[in-house]
């Protein structure tokens, strides 16, 4: 049996991933793992770049 706390942790991290709340953390982990040596963008710059990328194409439908 998992403790209540552990279950909450799982739910919380799933929620963060689904909402994009942890996008920056995932990005940093990703850069460290796949592109070692490249310094990651800081939080604010990453957020700004993400938005530009996302909204320059069809991103929402009817």
């Amino acid at each position: 049996m998992r403790s209540l706390h552990a279950r909450w942790q799982i739910l919380w991290s799933a929620l963060r991933t689904l909402t994009g709340d942890d996008a920056y953390d995932r990005y940093v982990r990703h850069v460290h793992a796949r592109h070692p040596g490249t310094p990651p963008l800081d939080r604010q710059a990453f957020y700004a770049a993400e938005l530009d990328r996302r909204w320059e194409q069809v991103n929402r439908c009817c």
């Binding site: 990703h30 850069v31 990328r53 929402r60 009817c62």
Partner: peptide
């Protein structure tokens, strides 16, 4: 490239894709 091309867990891709296609239509 860690940005637009990035392997992502399928339930997250599902969430993003559904959010993008679900509209007023």
């Amino acid at each position: 490239n860690g940005r637009d091309f990035m392997p992502t867990h399928r339930s997250i891709v599902f969430g993003h894709h559904f959010a993008a296609i679900a509209g007023a239509g």
